[in-house]
Design a protein around this nucleic acid. Structure first.
Lengths: 172, 172
DNA sequence: AAAAATAGTTAATAATGTTTACTAATTTGT
DNA sequence: ACAAATTAGTAAACATTATTAACTATTTTT
């Protein structure tokens, strides 16, 4: 019998909520033939300052695929696939970097900029609606909490995995 | 240019954190040939009271596949696939319901119970470590926040989708 | 100058999940 | 009571999303 614990409730709720957000996002963005994942790439290229990635590190130059892979925590090959869709739709473009010719900088096209701009008020309204009913202090604490968790996960993930070292192989 | 907003930061952080948790979970549970998703099923069958699903509704009888589909927000067919792995590994068993012979109740086997029990202290330690540094009141507020968001998403998802109605078809 | 590392891509493949169609059992409406 | 609708589970075919491994080109390190 597993005990009630507010900490575990929080972790499981974060999971649940994120799933739900992704589902709804996929449904909404399907109208323009995109997935939540592809939409997140657009938000990166729009330099959305609220993305955890931009809080972790400062970026002056346009992003490249490997940085997106890093931020979304997926393989570079996967980013290539996601990007191809956005390129085909004419929402982004690749610009060769003259200083390091291995690199290709990604930019929103005019069409991409406009799509992000046009949908921004509604995205914002949804987010405001969702997070309504809590005061500024509470929201700040909540964000600190999420960021603290994240820091532990990325900086000390070996430590966390080692907690589970005892997980013994079970016979199939 | 998108403005800084604490609300959007929160939503994007939840996304990011959940991804990271899933990745680490997949890596950890790979040792026993399971995915995070399959592990979640084990937690359901162990009646983990911290699962959002058990907070939403009360369950006296053992769960069935369609309830798991509901809780994990995936199709029934997908649950069949996930369950088959757990059956093969001998971690769960199906029991026919005598009152309604369409239903198959799912139960942990002795082996399944033991796996959950043995790993519980470490799971708990990880969660405690992650959520450390915040007091009880703060944690309670987070949980209320997460549950409030979730409620809006599930009860008023049509309203949320309608926010995006203006999303116009873009030509490929 | 050689070796190692980085960036991106391609191809093959794994996993995850969906839709559709089906069977069986139960519930509902008349 | 009985036809129609609903619910539960599964199977098959497929879509998608992601991964790994191998490769090219370029840059950095030693």
């Amino acid at each position: 019998m597993i005990k009630k614990s507010i900490e575990e409730s929080i972790v499981l709720s974060i999971f649940d909520l994120s799933n739900q957000l992704k589902k709804i996002g996929d449904e909404v963005y399907q109208k323009v033939g995109l997935t939540t994942q592809q939409w997140l790439i657009l938000l990166h290229l729009a330099n959305n300052p609220n993305l955890p990635f931009f809080k972790r590190e400062n970026h002056k130059k346009d992003l490249m695929a490997s940085e997106l892979a890093d931020s979304l925590n997926v393989s570079r090959a996967n980013i290539t696939n996601l990007i191809n869709v956005l390129l085909e739709k004419g929402l982004i473009k690749q610009v060769e970097d003259n200083e390091d010719r291995r690199k290709k900088r990604l930019k929103l096209t005019k069409k991409g900029v406009e799509l992000v701009k046009d949908t921004q008020p509604n995205r914002f309204a949804v987010i405001k609606y969702l997070t309504d009913g809590f005061n500024e202090d509470e929201k700040k604490t909540f964000l600190r909490f999420l960021e603290a968790c994240m820091n532990k996960l990325v900086n000390e993930d070996e430590k966390i995995k080692s907690f589970h070292e005892l997980l013994v192989e079970i016979e199939a």
